[in-house]
Write a protein that binds this DNA or RNA. Sequence first.
DNA 1: ATGAAATTATCGAAAAACGATAAAAATATA
DNA 2: TATATTTTTATCGTTTTTCGATAATTTCAT
Lengths: 73, 73
Amino acid sequence: MGIVVNLDVMMAKRKKGLTELAGEVDITMANLSVLKNNKAKAVRFSTLEAICKALDCQPGDILEYVPDGEEQS
Amino acid sequence: MGIVVNLDVMMAKRKKGLTELAGEVDITMANLSVLKNNKAKAVRFSTLEAICKALDCQPGDILEYVPDGEEQS
DNA sequence: ATGAAATTATCGAAAAACGATAAAAATATA
DNA sequence: TATATTTTTATCGTTTTTCGATAATTTCAT
């Protein structure tokens, strides 16, 4: 399946919506939405850093590698 | 400090050198070296996926967020 | 000393992020 | 239902960055 972005989980845990997070991460809501919904094909580390900072988490909390043929957690 | 790439650890664990890994990941050794030594500013998910596949690991094993003022593990 | 592995650097092309913006869809709320 | 809020989706243009190809240099083991 590839790399899966699990932003939803941490956002729910921190109780932050797209609007709020977008403000903190300093990225447009539209672009953050793209990332959240697995429409992005790459990330800049600066963006990943800002997200981890805002959500107080690690990249591993957000990015997951799902081998082909396996279902997502 | 930002996002830190810890490729070395997993490579050592899997006993794979740059040359071998580069072949499996299908990326030039030069570019993989850049990523390994924290010179990259972004990653494509396709690349991250190939690395996770080759090293049988998760993004979290490779990428680490180190908050400002903290030392690396 | 010799050879292999790794690092570093440069150039160019292709890919993709991201901002800005707008419209549509979904969701919540009164 | 009606209204407001949030989220999703899309497009355009600019900028950033990857990545291949390549070569030179450095490191490291033998």
